[in-house]
Design a protein around this nucleic acid. Structure first.
Lengths: 200, 200
DNA sequence: GTCTATAAAGGGATAGAC
DNA sequence: GTCTATCCCTTTATAGAC
């Protein structure tokens, strides 16, 4: 029953290698080794390294973005939304701490292609959260803030700590376990921080 | 008068290439080309690619870190500090938007060496800002927060927008000029956001 | 589909002349 | 110091047998 398809094994191995070493740093040989096959077979499934890379990249994007958008466009109250987004994202990234850098790197290298790939998933609709921020500001429960500023701040607080994980660990002198605990603490700290920052 | 030393030209070219493409992505040939010399001469000045890379990397770190630490350890009031750090960092990164990813990448690749290189500049002393946060909390002007949490949140808000510049530009549909304006607006928005978030 | 063997290109590094 | 020429290892990619 533990027989996995070759294609599946390739994708797993490639994901691990590309995420750890990036497009230029990863090696087809290592991917083949880790998948338990040889390079020739790897090329049988994926004509080129580039093709394999983008196959992985698209998977990763598809795995991340919909979660964010689904919560963002839900009809939950703003505060609940912030708490849920924080919880889901810290949970998700705790299992994949190298992912932010992987994605950010590729986007910096090929910004043009990114735009296409994002539009493929019919763009990102920000109207729900935008209206919500406006309504709350009119009610006086939060101060006025643009949806871009609100989102960029929140994403920064959620994602950056994982992108800078090594740096943080070195500066704060914490091991893996303590880092996990710290991120766990952020699940309540960050939403509080954000909602506080938005008070009128 | 426009005669630059070869070494200087090499460093300039290398900085540009390494920052844009990373250690593994950059090519010695391209660096030589851009410096207006050939590969042999490049190797005459720097025995290996790795040696050249770390020479550049150290320069970059030396260029960034002291600015942060100087303000952090000054005797300025907390709020002034936050405003100054924001202003200085957004100013600095606006001219070097690719730098965060460059540094973060290398740190993820060799966390061990990072620790050494950070200790070389006699580590980072957080006691001043730590005491300051404690004192302010006791006075009741801010709520209680650990120095690690405070700094990580601030750095996230300052650095991440540059690391995610391409992504943000794609999602928010803004061009270079609009991005600059947005970052200019953050110079006042971010400190306000932070100080607000710290209210009791 | 999967392998062995090998071609072909890429890219870091050095020898040696000037 | 600077160049041309070249080495040689690494890595991607393909040919061809099973």
């Amino acid at each position: 029953m533990s027989e996995e398809s070759t294609e599946k094994k390739i994708k797993e191995a490639a994901r691990i290698q590309f995420i750890k070493k990036g497009m230029t740093g990863a090696r087809m040989q290592e991917i083949a080794d880790q998948a338990g096959i040889n390079k020739a077979l790897l090329h049988y499934y994926y004509k080129s390294k580039e093709q394999l890379f983008y196959s992985i990249f698209d998977d990763v994007i598809q795995d991340m973005l919909p979660r964010l958008v689904a919560i963002l466009n839900s009809e939950l109250p703003l505060e609940v939304k912030v708490y849920q987004l924080t919880d889901k994202y810290i949970e998700f990234l705790s299992d994949r701490p190298e992912m932010p850098l992987f994605v950010l790197n590729e986007l910096q290298r090929h910004p043009e292609e990114l735009i296409q790939r994002l539009h493929l998933q019919k763009g990102i609709d920000l109207s729900v959260i935008k209206d919500q921020l406006k309504t709350e500001a009119e009610k006086g429960t939060i101060r006025e803030i643009s949806v871009e500023m609100f989102l960029l701040n929140m994403i920064s607080l959620l994602v950056f700590p994982f992108a800078a994980k090594s740096l943080f660990q070195a500066v704060a002198q914490v091991n893996e376990n303590q880092f996990s605990q710290f991120m766990e603490a952020r699940k309540t700290e960050v939403p509080k921080y954000i909602m506080n920052a938005l008070r009128p």
